[in-house]
């Protein structure tokens, strides 16, 4: 690692931590009934953040935390150490996943996702969804391109991420669903800005089907041309689609935690990263899925599925 560039990475880490710590707000915007009635046509576009299954790490922030007690310089030095540790962890996680990805060569997860959504959404009937297409959805410019070419009243964009938990014991699927206004009469933002009519985040934590160390977990997922992964993705994509269909009609009141609050027992290493670090793992069980998963409405409005 070039020594002259290392400080930049450290600062990026410190800044990222600072920005994320301020993001403890609701992630859900409910679709207003009057707006829903005004939408006569919707185009749905979905896509995976990356076409192959991703990995995750337990990010180190020990350096920055310890260093911050030594002031700005200490914080920067700590951040540099964290960056180096996190890069090393990411490289190891990526290399560890190679046997699974190699076993899945030729498997088209994106098309699987689109086909699953085509199966669920026209039947959901809450919104008049005319088409389900595949396109890159995970950056702002891509979303703007989708909106520009749309001819429907509204556009639903669902970006889906699928990755192993840091210990490779489970597969985690996360989705962000956002409904944008396309018809000018639905738009409330000034011309050129995006009007969000509905948005929410969804997290599905797959079953902990294996136990042991990372190597034995990876061997489990890789065997038989990664059939276990393919099966977990098939059921996972379906459940995520059903979670979104379930959440769409819910009003703004669901964002508030109920009295019979369930304190989930999900271990924190399974919920690293930006999207889930914002979620308090306290919520209300709102549905039990046919897989036995509990659907939990978190205090910030997000919907999380896991086996209790």
């Amino acid at each position: 690692m070039s020594s002259k560039l290392t400080p930049a990475l450290g600062i990026i880490t410190v800044c990222a931590a600072a920005i994320l710590s301020g993001c403890m707000t609701s992630v859900r915007t409910a679709l207003a009934p009057a707006t829903k009635d005004a939408i006569k046509s919707t185009a749905l576009t979905t896509g995976l953040v990356q076409p192959e299954i991703g990995t995750d790490i337990v990010a180190s922030n020990a350096g920055a935390a310890a260093g911050a007690t030594g002031g700005l310089i200490g914080g920067l030095v700590g951040g540099i150490i964290d960056s180096s540790v996190n890069t090393s962890r990411a490289k190891k996680a990526e290399a560890a996943a190679d046997p699974v990805r190699n076993a899945m060569a030729g498997y088209d997860a994106n098309s699987k996702l689109r086909d699953t959504f085509r199966q669920v959404f026209p039947d959901a009937k809450y919104l008049p969804i005319l088409s389900v297409e595949l396109a890159p959805t995970s950056d702002e410019a891509a979303c703007k391109r989708i909106l520009k070419s749309a001819t429907t009243d509204a556009v639903m964009i669902i970006s889906v991420d699928h990755r192993f938990t840091p210990d490779f014991s489970r597969i985690k699927i996360e989705a962000t669903a956002t409904l944008y206004a396309k018809k000018p009469s639905l738009a409330t933002e000034p011309a050129g800005a995006l009007t969000v009519l509905y948005t929410n985040k969804f997290v599905l934590l797959g079953d902990d089907v294996v136990s042991g160390n990372n190597d034995s977990n990876i061997a489990y997922w890789a065997k038989d041309n990664a059939e276990h992964v393919k099966s977990a993705l098939s059921t996972g994509f379906l459940e995520i689609a059903e979670m979104i269909a379930f959440d769409l009609p819910a009003g703004p009141e669901v964002n508030l935690p109920k009295k019979d609050t369930l304190e989930t027992t999900a271990p924190s290493p399974h919920f690293p990263g930006q999207a889930v670090a914002q979620m308090e793992l306290k919520g209300t069980v709102v549905h039990t899925h046919s897989t036995g998963h509990k659907w939990i409405r978190l205090a910030n409005g997000a919907l999380c599925s896991l086996k209790k």
């Binding site: 990356q50 960056s83 996190n86």
Partner: peptide, 20 residues
């Protein structure tokens, strides 16, 4: 071409090319 993409994880970036 089976795969050709980039991605990132924390402060790392990845590039993947898979050809049959």
């Amino acid at each position: 071409i089976l795969q050709l993409y980039t991605s990132s994880l924390n402060v790392a970036k990845m590039a993947t090319v898979v050809i049959e």
